[in-house]
């Protein structure tokens, strides 16, 4: 065991997979330096043919990943910020997810799109998105949203070994989080939610940085309300069973989602819970999401992105 930071865990996963499989390669603008240090040092280890610096050309990066994947390679396309996926949306949301499907299911496209997501850094509306609902709207793309260093590593290794396009979104606000990481190799399969805190009064479903905030809320409410915190870890595939099991136990649900409330993942999950476990609910489901505004730069950010106080209030209200 050693204590690794969230981005170090990502770096280690990349490094191990590049070493394990020569078909794996990494490309993106500035991967040789890496603004969030996720890919730092890899070019020195694996050389410029495996860790490829590109121009600022997202479409070239993602298109290249699709092409190489259809020829048996396992590209990791680094988009730096998940907001930038829109510049290559054609590839990320349409081409990659649909390619296998449209061509009669004969191919596999093992691609990882990797990017930092989320706000809480006051860097404004074009560097703070959590665009997972957009991704979920495009069947064929898996969506991975790790909330801890341990998960970040295990899920990334699973993503790289998956034979399908995966959008791996790590959260910028979690970069400094540290956790004990085993020396030996481990993999966390996609599609397995994790119960982070066991509880009996209310289920809080929250992924990525929202999970970190939800755990803090649960700890704060200790003695007052028994909160069960579930981390879906991957949104596609989604481990609905684990969530439903918890809902049956508690009868009350709060969903915390950093994405914009309107047409977001929280609304989708609410619908799914009601479709599958309406009779188990003792109260209407509450959601805490980003308000329906662009994410402001600077100090106004807190009026749009979900805040700890809102999570506490929602939990208290739902158990009333």
């Amino acid at each position: 065991m050693r204590l690794l930071q969230y981005n170090e865990a990502i770096n280690e996963a990349l490094s191990e997979e590049l070493a394990r499989d020569e078909k794996v390669f990494l490309l993106g603008e500035g991967v040789g330096v890496s603004s969030l240090a996720t890919t730092r040092g890899l070019v020195q280890k694996f050389g410029p043919d495996r860790v490829i610096d590109t121009p600022i050309a997202e479409a070239a990066i993602t298109g290249c990943a699709i092409g190489a994947a259809t020829m048996g390679y396992r590209p990791i396309a680094d988009l730096m910020y998940s907001d930038f996926l829109y510049t290559a949306a054609d590839d990320v949301l349409i081409r990659a997810p649909q390619w296998r499907f449209l061509h009669g299911g004969r191919q596999s496209l093992p691609i990882v799109f990797i990017a930092g997501s989320g706000g809480y850094r006051k860097v404004g509306p074009e560097h703070s998105h959590s665009p997972h609902s957009i991704m979920l709207h495009h069947p064929g793309l898996k969506v991975v949203v790790p909330s801890t260093p341990y998960d970040a590593k295990g899920l990334l290794k699973a993503s790289i070994r998956d034979d399908n396009p995966v959008f791996y979104m790590f959260h910028k606000a979690l970069i400094g989080m540290k956790e004990d990481i085993p020396e030996e190799e481990y993999i966390i399969p996609l599609g397995q939610a994790k119960v982070r805190r066991e509880g009996t009064d209310v289920t809080v479903v929250a992924a990525s940085y929202m999970n970190y905030l939800a755990i803090q809320a649960a700890d704060k409410l200790k003695g007052e309300i028994s909160v069960e915190v579930i981390d879906p870890r991957t949104l596609e595939p989604l481990d609905l069973d684990t969530i439903l099991k918890s809902v049956i136990k508690t009868g009350r649900v709060v969903i915390v989602d950093e994405d914009t409330e309107r047409c977001g993942f929280a609304g989708e999950l609410m619908a799914q819970i009601m479709e599958h476990a309406f009779d188990e609910l003792d109260a209407p489901i509450k959601r805490v999401c980003a308000a329906n505004y662009p994410i402001p730069s600077g100090f106004l950010e807190k009026f749009v992105l979900p805040q700890p106080a809102q999570i506490l209030a929602a939990i208290r209200e739902v158990v009333k």
Partner: peptide, 18 residues
């Protein structure tokens, strides 16, 4: 792809793989 222009970037991946 039926969205024109894909050949320019997807070809990069094919070329790199080749």
């Amino acid at each position: 792809s039926a969205i024109l222009g894909a050949q320019f970037t997807v070809s990069v991946g094919w070329g790199l793989a080749a």
